[in-house]
Design a binder for these strands. Structure first.
Lengths: 253, 253
DNA sequence: CCGCCGCCATGACATGGATCAAAGAATAAA
DNA sequence: TTTATTCTTTGATCCATGTCATGGCGGCGG
């Protein structure tokens, strides 16, 4: 969903699985997030210092629930490394993943007092935490940050509308092609290799993101492979043979 | 999409079909929108005066395109009366309606320079126009307005996620029930009668909103009627027989 | 009043994707 | 290394919903 055109260098020394560093000092990981904010919002030194003061860093294994739907919304998160999925459930367990969050993306923003969705790690992940109260105070103080957050929300909204078009009107093949294209574009915006594109999530996750079943996702992948549109590489990588082909297939043209 | 808990009184003397009133004076219709903003953002007298200065009012017949996908995004709109639909198209004409806008709702906000969707009137509609440049200047000047707009965008985002769950994972019957429930809730929030709920849009529009065909929408309505969950009244009204039933049906419980 | 046209309903049939089942691959555990 | 365990692929079948076709109803213009 919201993402920011900046790639993080890898960092290592944050705590693992929910233990957070004490606030108030600039951490290698924190520094990355702060740098992101600088790039995007052109923050002043003073704003940066204040942001660095309030953020904490956390690290989780794959498959860890960061927060659940309905939990009190006390923290805003920013992904430093890894992939996070956010989803909603129906009472009988049907699941819709509404977004995959990559490094640079924020999540956990809520206007209400509780989260409207569950957030779970797909890979090992490190996160920056911004306590909500302190973040809100900061936003009041620095309208420029508020503005930046608003612009991120608008972008997410546009992405959500694209996703509605996909879910409501595209065929399975179009959905998969759109998905690969999206991953490729996001990789490019973050300055990564766009072509053999890295697909870190399972077939089940892809299915729940696209409104399909794992079987259909799997079959469609092999179908695309057979018709030489893509090829599947080692390490969850997908090679796109002809980008223009894929673009056409994604829109049924 | 974003809506504001306030019902407009009817007003009459704005221009018809695209002709706009001159800016700079408070118009009966404008006054309504300004009042809305007051209620929601607790604006100061000064802020109100400035808002009133920049807004214009317009009126359109049913079936009129307010703006198209890709048009330069120069205006923010607020619905004063009537219903507007916003939608995206695929190259072959498949359509996804991403929202119905009722009195009090804003639309036409864009972070880019062009609109990401088409907006078209469903019924005769009157609108308030806020020229983008002047609106942005105003937002810079009054962070409180910016904040309110952000909170609206966040609400819309939450609604969009609900809609993704609906489009990706609900059955036709669940979709229709959720839709009726949504209309009922929105009517209630705007202080209108919630039970015989007014459904101003055509079967085709409902279908394109829910990712179905008109035939399926029609069949599902009769099915719900036959099983005594709803009954269809005069004047595009739908009577909900048992709200709790409908709530369960909407989630497959 | 009549005839046209756009919406809505309903029936018959087709099909894309779901479901059910089971056999490989990959990964983790022992 | 062997054995669980989980993920992926593939096949066979089914069904919810789409597609196509037809008739009714209501509004509007002539």
């Amino acid at each position: 969903m919201t993402h920011i055109d900046f790639a993080y260098p890898r960092d290592s020394n944050t705590q693992t699985n929910g233990k957070t560093d004490p606030a108030g000092e600039i951490h290698p990981c924190s520094a990355c997030t702060v740098r992101t904010l600088t790039v995007c919002a052109a923050l002043e030194a003073e704003e940066l210092r204040r942001l660095a003061e309030i953020l904490q860093t956390t690290r989780f294994d794959a498959g860890h629930t960061v927060f659940g739907e309905g939990d009190p919304a006390e923290t805003l998160y920013n992904v430093t490394s890894g992939t996070v999925k956010v989803y909603k459930l129906l009472p009988d367990g049907r699941r819709q993943i509404t977004g995959f969050l990559l490094p640079g993306d924020f999540f956990g923003l809520s206007v209400n007092d509780s989260y409207a969705y569950t957030a779970e790690t797909v890979t090992p992940v490190s996160l920056c935490r911004f306590p909500r109260r302190r973040m809100e105070a900061l936003l009041d103080e620095f309208p420029k940050m508020q503005r930046r957050l608003f612009s991120m929300a608008s972008n997410e909204l546009a992405a959500a509308q694209d996703q509605m078009l996909l879910l409501g009107r595209k065929t399975a093949k179009e959905k998969i092609c759109s998905f690969l294209l999206l991953l490729s574009q996001r990789a490019s915006r973050r300055g990564h290799k766009t072509n053999p594109v890295h697909v870190p999530m399972s077939r089940a996750d892809i299915a729940d993101y696209l409104g399909l079943t794992t079987e259909t996702v799997s079959r469609t992948f092999t179908q695309l492979k057979t018709s030489r549109v893509i090829s599947l590489l080692e390490g969850n990588k997908v090679q796109i043979q002809d980008m223009d082909d894929l673009l056409d297939l994604a829109e049924g043209a």
